[in-house]
């Protein structure tokens, strides 16, 4: 309860100070949410009202057509379901793969550890553009094109996530696992029974990062998915941006609807994110 003890400590000047802080906090919230609220409202606007001069925040007439049209499109529902599945698999898989690697690098000793760590970390700096074409050649040779695996597998092992989780594991005092080790537990059991239960918060943050990376990806699915049954949500939304006219109303409505499942997941894990923040051993 860091926040409360702090505010108790500053009883003098309390009103002015806490008032200005609340104001700053509100400013943060408004500035951050403004573009999104505006996007949601634009979904209610007529085709070209979004870009009309002069600027109006609220729709002239509230139209439900855009939202209804997107919702009634079976392709939208299918794209949402498929993207949800792919993103979930991607996030869960990456947690398993990357947390194990992070633990190994944080706690275990083995030959060539430093060299392997250096190679793993160096992959963090490879621009996606460097391997865009050749990654496509690889997944094509592995016959993964036009399957869910082409989305799920390639980015699953991620140096930045390994680095992120490892930083957290390094901050966990060794005393915590010593008891388990003295009891004769092997390193894997220590990982599974001591580290994993402590990782809830960091897993939620890392998992959400990976989930969103997949949910928002566009360049890679465009290359690898042609089958309309396996279209991801960003590909679906791209169809509203034709060469000769952008269907702003539909695009904004579709984008707003595409946020909803992610926000639901986000709110479900919200407590973990907040608590996880506190558990972090990022020292």
């Amino acid at each position: 309860m860091a926040a409360t003890s702090w505010s108790r400590a500053v009883k003098p000047r309390k009103w002015a100070l806490s008032g200005s802080k609340t104001a700053v906090a509100c400013l943060f919230i408004v500035a951050t949410l403004f573009p999104l609220v505006w996007m949601g409202l634009s979904g209610f606007k007529a085709k070209n009202e979004v870009t009309r001069t002069p600027f109006r925040f609220l729709p002239e007439v509230w139209l439900w057509e855009n939202y209804l049209q997107v919702l009634q499109d079976p392709a939208f529902v299918r794209a949402m379901a498929f993207t949800l599945l792919a993103s979930t698999l991607f996030a869960l898989g990456s947690l398993v793969v990357n947390s194990m690697a992070a633990y190994v690098f944080a706690r275990l000793e083995f030959p060539f550890k430093r060299a392997i760590w250096a190679v793993v970390i160096s992959t963090m700096f490879i621009p996606s553009m460097t391997i865009l074409l050749t990654s496509f050649l690889v997944v094509n040779e592995l016959r993964m094109v036009n399957t869910i695996w082409v989305l799920v597998l390639p980015g699953m092992a991620s140096a930045s996530q390994i680095f992120f989780i490892r930083q957290f594991y390094l901050g966990i005092p060794t005393a915590i696992e010593e008891a388990a080790l003295i009891d004769g537990a092997g390193p894997f059991r220590v990982f599974a029974h001591v580290f994993v239960p402590m990782s809830k918060g960091i897993f939620v943050v890392s998992g959400m990062t990976m989930f969103l990376a997949m949910w928002n990806s566009y360049v890679w699915p465009v290359l690898t998915i042609t089958e309309s049954d396996l279209t991801v949500i960003q590909q679906f939304l791209a169809l509203f941006r034709g060469a000769r006219s952008t269907e702003y109303g539909l695009l904004m409505a579709g984008s707003t609807l595409a946020l909803i499942p992610v926000l639901i997941i986000f709110f479900a894990f919200q407590r973990q994110i907040v608590q996880g923040a506190r558990l972090s051993g990022f020292k």
């Binding site: 951050t32 996007m39 969103l212 928002n216 566009y218 960003q234 939304l237 984008s255 946020l259």
Partner: peptide, 25 residues
């Protein structure tokens, strides 16, 4: 960190929301 827990919760939730939007959108 310094505002009340309620406001802090609201802040934490809001700040994460833009991350949900794709770069193209």
């Amino acid at each position: 960190r310094s505002v009340g827990p309620r406001m802090a919760g609201a802040l934490k939730m809001t700040i994460y929301i833009p991350t949900v939007v794709s770069t193209v959108i």
